[in-house]
Design a protein around this nucleic acid. Structure first.
Lengths: 346, 346
DNA sequence: CTGAAAGCGCTAACAA
DNA sequence: TTGTTAGCGCTTTCAG
């Protein structure tokens, strides 16, 4: 007993999807070519034949084998998305946006998380490149030469929050330099002169852009102290104690998740925000408007990010770098700097 | 100028990945069969030939075409994950967990978000079913008959937070009945007798399980008032005003995200948690321990969920329903019920 | 141990 | 309008 089965009852739902085009052709008494023509549509076929084919296809529950179609067409109608941390809401939202756009155009989305590991990132990208029509790398940490390897291994490469000098690689980046400048100016206008920056992951291009913003602030006379941290809530929580040893009047976190961790630890320590210290984040996560105190941050739309990234996959689109500018959102976590206590040794 | 190119320089990185097995065979002066044998490993080949093949493959940057392999093997080494909302951190974490497990075993992960739409959910599932070796549906909203159709259309179906009477469908579910009972007992012991439940999405099986828990609480003498809400932060924010018209002493939200929205709105209204009203969530989101006040909730490990789900894809695993039990986490958002004011009309 | 040939399921070119 | 045929890139018999 193999593929065949003329029993009518079992057809509709039993092994739906396993039938081949030959089964349909046999049942409709036409050639496989005709079946293909009917089902792909827009081809010259007699209405009567078309109906017979469709009925047969329905009956056996035929769905074309996508691997066969891919092999033939040379396109899987699939894109790949690689992100450092799929659990991070920021990347989750980007994934949501891009996969929705892709689905609307009939594309599937393959994902891979890399746990911030540049090596796994590279391997995942190379691996997926062979499958997909286009590859989207979110905040890739790998080196530029490897990025170029990936570009060469695949059809189309698009980067989010990373730039690469390469003729065929598109990118969508948030202007974090601008964001940090806005944040620093805001804090400066509130009298803050001594600010700790809780740094993001090493190798993160977007952290380097923030650093540029801080250098601008330093040139303008502000004091910026850099403390290694990371990108998650826990990282923020864990970096507070060291940050405080530098006696800042304000903290700027790599992103809002870090900032939430920071607020949590400060609360534990009995330090009031914003009275004792101001805190700001970056990215405007959904929760940032809803926590207490509301978080001052730099807001960029992740849906816009996803949408723009998808546009890059349009073959007619120019392969350039799109810069997205956000805006300062001032909430309750920042306020006028507390007068520095002369000697505030605990 | 088509596929061929004997220029040595261009080989390594230029069009890496586009070379076919024939290119390698030609360069190594062997048959394609031998190339295949060498590259798939474990086949009898002379060491010398193997070296020559590997060198040739390296030189032209050969990577096998996955569509061809899939067509031949009948397996894409890919699983599909469908979730109502990819941006929701709960599903993002499940996706992270499952895709990490899958990747560790050499499987890829296809994703689809459905925006809570049962119709799109069904279509995505049917679509993916043809591609993948296994399908994971997170909290599916579609009807049982349709679920069975999906099960029939694909190779292996696993459900998260939904059960289905079907011999070949596995499931991993959280015992929300238990969770809600714990939450109600906890609140009961604090003197709460009038509790509003902010309901989850209609059609959500996991909401029905919570409802069972509430019926148990009602049988034990507590008063539960149900208010339609949803699953997101915004939903929670928006449902508070109606909830308050019922004058509860405590609120239980469908999940922690909803609860955060609730806390936010209560704060706006000048209502203090837990002094004026207690609030609890479900799922123990990462932020729940870090917000103010810390959220009392029912905690289940999403990584455990993902890991168990992956186990179901092991062909030797029994196709049963795994029940995951969580635990009550008491934090600052719940406290003894305030003495009811006789007439507290605003 | 290696090569030749068949064929996975489908679509496109060419005939009829 | 329809059928026949070739072949996408790979793996796997079956001979040698």
């Amino acid at each position: 007993m193999r593929q065949h089965r003329s029993d009518r009852h079992a057809a509709t739902s039993d092994r739906a999807g396993r039938a081949t085009i030959h089964d349909v052709a046999r049942l409709a008494e036409v050639s496989t070519a005709t079946v293909s023509r009917v089902l792909s549509g827009g081809k010259p076929v007699t209405a009567q034949v078309a109906d017979r084919v469709r009925a047969a296809a329905q009956e056996v529950g035929y769905r074309p084998n996508p691997a066969a179609q891919t092999l033939l067409r040379g396109s899987s109608r699939t894109i790949g998305v690689v992100a450092p941390d799929l659990g991070n809401p920021y990347f989750a939202e980007i994934l949501k946006g891009i996969s929705a756009e892709a689905a609307a155009d009939g594309y599937h989305t393959l994902v891979a998380g890399t746990d911030e590991d540049p090596e796994r990132e590279y391997r995942s990208a190379i691996e997926l490149a062979r499958w997909v029509d286009g590859l989207l790398l979110c905040a890739p940490r790998m080196s530029a030469p490897r990025l170029k390897e990936v570009a060469a291994a695949g059809r189309k490469l698009v980067l989010i929050n990373r730039v690469l000098r390469h003729p065929s690689v598109g990118a969508v980046v948030v202007d974090y330099h601008h964001g940090v400048r806005l944040l620093c100016e805001h804090l400066g206008s509130l009298g803050h002169k001594r600010i700790v920056y809780l740094e993001g992951p090493p190798n993160a291009w977007s952290d380097q852009q923030r650093q540029r913003g801080f250098r601008t602030a330093e040139a303008a006379g502000q004091t910026i102290i850099r403390v290694p941290c990371g990108s998650s809530l826990r990282d923020g929580y864990g970096a507070v104690d060291e940050a405080l040893t530098h006696r800042p009047t304000a903290l700027i976190a790599f992103n809002d998740h870090v900032a939430v961790g920071v607020l949590s630890r400060l609360r534990e320590l009995g330090i009031t925000v914003p009275d004792d210290i101001s805190v700001a984040g970056v990215d405007d996560a959904p929760m940032s408007a809803h926590i207490d105190p509301g978080l001052t941050t730099y807001a960029v739309s992740t849906v816009e990010l996803g949408r723009r990234a998808w546009q890059h996959f349009n073959p007619t689109a120019p392969t350039n770098t799109i810069h997205l500018t956000g805006e300062l959102v001032v909430r309750a976590s920042t306020a006028r700097a507390a007068r520095r206590r002369r000697t505030s040794q605990a």
